[in-house]
Design a protein around this nucleic acid. Structure first.
Length: 425
DNA sequence: TCTGGGGTCCTAGGACCC
DNA sequence: TCTGGGGTCCTAGGACCC
């Protein structure tokens, strides 16, 4: 059987571990630049707020109901995620744990466990005790069905955090109660189309013939259909394979029209993507830089453009990335536009041990730069913002360009932010 | 005034080959 | 006037996920 462990309202739950006064209160965590709601507590959802809502549109409602508003604190969330995953590994040492996202993991539960529901509740209780994070678990024969089970585990209190779909009757009932758009793999584009074809539920989808599935959907759709019918066909992704792209991008607090300011942003993206690349022990041989104006300001002149640049030799050197990115930026930059967003994507990524250098590459210099980057990384690893040592072209960092008014604290990774326990009463 | 960021996979169509 | 058949590879765009 496959168990899907899903952290409840994950970012909000992370904050609540260190700020107990936020429990039982509506809480919203905002995206970068304090733009949108990305995580909501159940209390905030009950007030009608949804993931993706722009903050400026619900600010009045938030003030009226005393909703706690927090800027994202992703270093904390990453650390809490690691704690949850370690607990799951400890619970099931023999089985492979498939970490699917920051707040989700698939567990392959051995047959010898027997009582799946009892085991699931034990997992829920242990993760809560070890980390303070509430989780739900869905257990079934395929990943797609486990996802559906996990939704019920989260929504229906009677399940006490664990729902098991392990016979035909339960499977059919669960599919009948699940809207087609809530099925893993059926997105916002496809769900309306299926509904117009008279397929409103997961069950209606599951009873179509293979022929009908082929007419309506592509190969992904067929896989979803087979999984709903109990045939496992979403294999574990091979986590040893490195990333194919690495991106860093930002929206800016206010529009940027000046080349030098954009260049500073792009050089910060270079530093961020370079750091991620080195963490993966990879090199990149191409990058793309893109810029765009504010698409919501329909009356302003709109502009979007991107440019790719080959990096001479595959590299993981922040300076080389920044130089190439600046060159790319020069080709896309046009004066007279107010830029709202920009980004940098590294592509053509390969493992560092598989790098093919050009014939006349200066190997000694490359080795020197590599060691320098290692040292920079090790120093920056100890600083909260990762940028104690910067390339000069990155200026003062991205902090001056983006907005975070509901400031984060690094309760678990910065000494100064460790919470104080009062002993005077 | 204010609207996020980072990924993966699939497919259609073009370029190119013999 | 007539204008093949069968491949591969690459890329942009779309759909999906968190």
């Amino acid at each position: 059987m496959i168990g899907l462990v899903d952290c409840n309202n994950f970012f909000v739950s992370c904050e609540r571990v260190f700020r107990p006064e936020l429990r039982d209160r509506p809480v919203v965590v905002l995206s970068n630049n304090d733009g949108c709601a990305v995580a909501l507590s159940n209390e905030a959802k009950a007030l009608g707020l949804k993931r993706g809502d722009p903050y400026f549109k619900f600010k009045a409602v938030a003030d009226m109901h005393g909703i706690a508003i927090l800027s994202g604190n992703h270093k904390l969330y990453g650390d809490m995620s690691r704690r949850v995953m370690n607990t799951l590994r400890w619970l099931l040492p023999d089985a492979e744990l498939e970490v699917y996202s920051i707040d989700e993991a698939f567990m392959h539960i051995p047959d010898k466990i027997g009582d799946n529901a009892g085991y699931g509740r034990y997992v829920v209780a242990t993760v809560l005790r070890n980390t303070g994070i509430p989780v739900s678990i869905g257990i079934s024969s395929t990943k797609t069905l486990a996802k559906i089970a996990a939704r019920f585990a989260k929504k229906v209190n009677g399940y006490r955090g664990c729902c098991v779909i392990d016979d035909e009757e339960k499977r059919i009932r669960a599919l009948q109660l699940t809207e087609v758009g809530d099925v893993w793999g059926i997105g916002r584009r496809f769900a309306p189309k299926l509904r117009t074809y008279g397929i409103p539920t997961a069950y209606a989808l599951s009873v179509l013939s293979r022929q009908q599935i082929h007419t309506l959907m592509n190969i992904d759709g067929e896989r979803t259909w087979r999984e709903l019918n109990g045939e496992p066909c979403i294999s574990s992704e091979n986590t040893s394979v490195h990333k194919h792209t690495i991106t860093s991008s930002r929206s800016f607090a206010s529009d940027i029209s000046d080349f030098e300011a954009l260049r500073m942003a792009v050089c910060n993206f270079a530093a961020i993507t370079g750091r991620k690349l080195r963490k993966e022990h990879c090199f990149a041989s191409e990058l793309e830089v893109w810029v765009c104006t504010n698409r919501f300001h329909e009356n302003d002149p709109q502009y979007y453009n991107s440019a790719s640049v080959r990096l001479g030799d595959a590299t993981d050197d922040t300076s080389a990335i920044a130089t190439a990115a600046t060159e790319a930026l020069r080709t896309v930059f046009r004066t007279g536009f107010a830029y709202k967003k920009a980004g940098l994507t590294l592509t053509k990524i390969c493992n560092s041990d598989g790098v093919q250098l050009s014939l006349f590459a200066d190997v000694a210099e490359i080795g020197k730069r590599h060691r320098l980057m290692r040292i920079v990384d090790s120093i920056n690893a100890s600083s909260a913002s990762h940028d104690k040592i910067r390339i000069a072209s990155a200026g003062e960092g991205l902090g001056t360009l983006t907005r975070h008014e509901h400031g984060p604290k690094l309760y678990s990774t910065r000494l100064a932010d460790i919470i104080h326990v009062r002993t005077d009463r």
